[in-house]
């Protein structure tokens, strides 16, 4: 359903929710992403891993236009990402993002953090937004903290709130940019559990992470990126047990 006159892909049952075609990105002269091709179907869970500097965070940030790409196409839910601000806002409302450093709004209470998006972007009435927010807070097992401020919560709690905040916008796709990298080990599990619940409910997810246990148990596909290119992509079973490229083998030997 597109009201704009930009290039669109007709929505159909088999149309991918995200399509990245021959995408290149430069930071000034530095060629950070090179010829990325990616197709994500609705309901797929994709884990992207790789050494630091490989461009994996940059890739998912291009999908919700936190970064701009210079060549190639990115199409999300039928809308192509261009410089048209309307398209950008349309895509951002459909794509939820969870950041490594949570990025909650410290001057608002937890419940206000959650209702902000629905009230101001989707124009949901306040009461309805609050009910929905409480429902999602219960889902991530943090409903009792609704009136607290983010500064009063632990890292794991904040990240669960961040996930709930993105869910309140009812996105089609959730992007996770190293969601557990900034957490103490004992808090990683509580966040991963929430992400597993989400996956089991059928949410389309792109997760950049080093948590290989999560990749093995939840992912439909695992992508390995190095130096701005997708080196290898496979089902988790094949990826971990039978890596094809030297670089993949090297990476896996370092982290497993």
């Amino acid at each position: 359903m597109n009201e704009t006159e930009n290039k669109t892909v007709p929505s159909s049952a088999t149309a991918p929710i995200i399509e990245v075609n021959s995408m290149h990105k430069w930071y000034g002269d530095f060629h950070v992403l090179s010829d990325i091709n990616l197709t994500v179907q609705l309901g797929e869970r994709i884990v992207i891993c790789g050494p630091s500097g490989s461009g994996k965070s940059t890739l998912i940030r291009c999908i919700n236009r936190l970064e701009e790409h210079q060549r190639g196409q990115i199409i999300v839910n039928g809308t192509e990402l261009t410089n048209d601000i309307k398209n950008i806002e349309k895509v951002r409302a459909e794509v939820g993002m969870v950041f490594q450093h949570f990025n909650l709004f410290p001057h608002l209470t937890i419940i206000e953090n959650l209702t902000l998006g629905p009230i101001w972007v989707r124009k949901t009435p306040k009461k309805e937004a609050e009910e929905m927010a409480m429902m999602y807070l219960e889902k991530v097992h943090i409903a009792e903290q609704a009136e607290k401020f983010p500064g009063q919560l632990s890292g794991g709690q904040q990240q669960r709130v961040a996930i709930a905040r993105s869910l309140c916008m009812k996105p089609e796709v959730m992007l996770f940019d190293e969601p557990t990298s900034a957490l103490d080990p004992e808090m990683i599990k509580e966040v991963l559990d929430v992400m597993i619940d989400l996956a089991e409910e059928g949410m389309t997810m792109l997760v950049v992470t080093h948590e290989m246990g999560f990749a093995k148990s939840v992912a439909d596909r695992v992508m390995f990126m190095d130096e701005g290119q997708v080196v290898e992509e496979n089902k988790p079973h094949d990826f971990f047990d039978n890596p094809q490229h030297e670089r993949t083998k090297l990476f896996l030997s370092q982290i497993l």
């Binding site: 806002e89 409302a93 794509v95 990025n103 998006g117 993105s166 916008m169």
Partner: peptide, 16 residues
């Protein structure tokens, strides 16, 4: 920057 990015990712426009 994270605050700007979080607001952007929720779909808030400049004024909001």
């Amino acid at each position: 920057r994270g605050q700007f990015e979080a607001a952007d990712s929720l779909g808030l426009n400049y004024n909001q």
